[in-house]
Simulated scan of single mutants.
Amino acid sequence: MASNTNLTPPRGLEGLDLLASAIIILDDDNRVVYANPAAEHLLESSVKALSQLRFTEMFLNADSLNAVFRQATENLFADWRQDLTLERSGREPLHVHCIVSALDKPGMAILIELRENVQQLKLDREERLLDQSQANKELIRNLAHEIKNPLGGIRGAAQLLELELPERHLKELREYTQVIVKEADRLQTLVDRLLAPHRRPHIVGDVNIHEVFERVRSLITAEFPSGLAIKRDYDLSIPEFRGDKEQLIQAVLNIAHNAAQALAPRIAAGDAQLIFQTRIARQVTLAKVRYRLALDLHIIDNGPGIPPEIQDRIFYPLVSGREGGSGLGLTLAQTFVQQHMGVIECASRPGCTDFRILIPLP
């Protein structure tokens, strides 16, 4: 049957253009005769381009759907529903919930509804974060140990050299040896920070999450006494839980301190704001494990936002959006939270950056 592409919704189905779900209508030959704007967006293609294809030609693994389409046209079911991963050449696969229904209209045989499977996308992203974090930890540990031993030798050699300097040149040459010593000390401090999460024992005790936030609030307020308002939005019913209080203080402090530094222009203007929010989330999946309850913590600021080009890499070591930043604060925060079986997520746009910490509760 020849394709009869509709660039406007079929008569009687005008409301399809307004739906958030992707809607695709196929003819008897499985060619696209209609796709709503949501489908164009999801498939990253125009109706005109889609109309040149059979539906199964859009994906590398869609041949199995032919049997489903045939059964639909034979009225063997009212509708067919299944979660699918549709592979695409040169593009990210689509994780969707697919609904297939038969249509009884001239030139229109099949209606397909695709809903992006947000949960699957979230699971895949968390898995990538965990793999990335594990690789980072191995890299950091190996790199830090490789740097540490030569540093001690460089510092010691500079000190011995200073003792051997002739008296008449001591003042002018000592300046150079001191540069070597100070730079070696600076690198040693960096190495110690890199190794800190792996050296320090995980000390577990009863933790009140609001004591953690209040400790961080007092530290941030002491450093930024004016121009920065810290709003508390606490769920005081949250119970104590088992965890490492000092690690959690450091994780929250690293995030809040980064936020406060990014807020410098607003602090100068007097309208900078940080929000500390605590909630309980229910039925949370972290690293493919389902938890009945989890701490749902937010540190929100009204700063300029994280540059888009580094948003996917902000938890990598030595990646910083601030000139002069070490790029270790968020890496260490993620490590400390992961030692509590949790994860840190970030959503950022100009005027609002939200760091979300999820930690499972027993």
Results as ranks from 00 to 15, higher is better:
residue 128 R to G: 05
residue 128 R to K: 15
residue 128 R to M: 14
residue 129 L to D: 08
residue 130 L to P: 02
residue 130 L to R: 11
residue 130 L to I: 06
residue 132 Q to R: 14
residue 132 Q to C: 04
residue 133 S to Q: 12
residue 133 S to Y: 03
residue 133 S to G: 07
residue 134 Q to T: 04
residue 134 Q to H: 11
residue 134 Q to C: 06
residue 135 A to I: 09
residue 136 N to H: 15
residue 136 N to Q: 13
residue 137 K to N: 13
residue 138 E to G: 03
residue 138 E to T: 11
residue 138 E to P: 01
residue 139 L to P: 00
residue 139 L to M: 15
residue 139 L to T: 12
residue 139 L to D: 05
residue 139 L to S: 12
residue 140 I to D: 01
residue 140 I to K: 00
residue 141 R to C: 04
residue 141 R to L: 12
residue 142 N to V: 00
residue 142 N to H: 09
residue 142 N to E: 05
residue 142 N to P: 03
residue 142 N to I: 01
residue 144 A to M: 07
residue 144 A to I: 09
residue 144 A to L: 09
residue 145 H to S: 02
residue 145 H to L: 13
residue 146 E to Y: 11
residue 146 E to V: 06
residue 146 E to I: 09
residue 147 I to M: 12
residue 147 I to H: 01
residue 147 I to Y: 01
residue 148 K to G: 00
residue 149 N to H: 06
residue 151 L to W: 02
residue 151 L to S: 01
residue 151 L to C: 03
residue 151 L to T: 00
residue 152 G to N: 10
residue 153 G to Y: 10
residue 153 G to T: 03
residue 154 I to W: 07
residue 155 R to F: 01
residue 155 R to P: 02
residue 155 R to Y: 04
residue 156 G to V: 03
residue 156 G to M: 08
residue 157 A to K: 01
residue 157 A to V: 08
residue 157 A to E: 05
residue 158 A to M: 04
residue 158 A to T: 03
residue 158 A to D: 03
residue 158 A to E: 01
residue 159 Q to D: 02
residue 159 Q to H: 07
residue 160 L to A: 15
residue 160 L to W: 05
residue 161 L to W: 00
residue 162 E to N: 10
residue 162 E to P: 03
residue 163 L to W: 04
residue 163 L to F: 06
residue 163 L to I: 04
residue 163 L to K: 12
residue 163 L to V: 04
residue 164 E to G: 10
residue 164 E to C: 12
residue 164 E to R: 06
residue 165 L to E: 05
residue 165 L to D: 05
residue 165 L to R: 06
residue 166 P to E: 05
residue 166 P to A: 03
residue 167 E to L: 15
residue 167 E to T: 15
residue 168 R to M: 08
residue 168 R to A: 11
residue 169 H to L: 15
residue 169 H to T: 15
residue 169 H to M: 11
residue 170 L to W: 14
residue 170 L to S: 13
residue 170 L to F: 15
residue 171 K to S: 10
residue 172 E to T: 13
residue 172 E to G: 03
residue 172 E to H: 07
residue 173 L to M: 15
residue 173 L to V: 08
residue 173 L to N: 09
residue 174 R to S: 15
residue 174 R to L: 12
residue 175 E to V: 14
residue 175 E to T: 05
residue 175 E to N: 02
residue 175 E to M: 06
residue 175 E to H: 06
residue 176 Y to P: 01
residue 176 Y to K: 11
residue 177 T to M: 08
residue 177 T to K: 01
residue 178 Q to N: 13
residue 180 I to M: 15
residue 180 I to N: 05
residue 181 V to D: 03
residue 183 E to N: 12
residue 183 E to Q: 14
residue 183 E to H: 10
residue 184 A to V: 07
residue 184 A to T: 10
residue 185 D to L: 07
residue 185 D to N: 13
residue 185 D to T: 01
residue 186 R to F: 10
residue 186 R to N: 14
residue 186 R to Q: 14
residue 186 R to Y: 09
residue 187 L to I: 11
residue 187 L to R: 05
residue 187 L to C: 08
residue 188 Q to Y: 08
residue 188 Q to C: 07
residue 189 T to Y: 06
residue 189 T to L: 12
residue 189 T to M: 12
residue 189 T to I: 14
residue 189 T to F: 08
residue 190 L to S: 08
residue 190 L to P: 00
residue 190 L to K: 11
residue 190 L to Q: 10
residue 190 L to F: 13
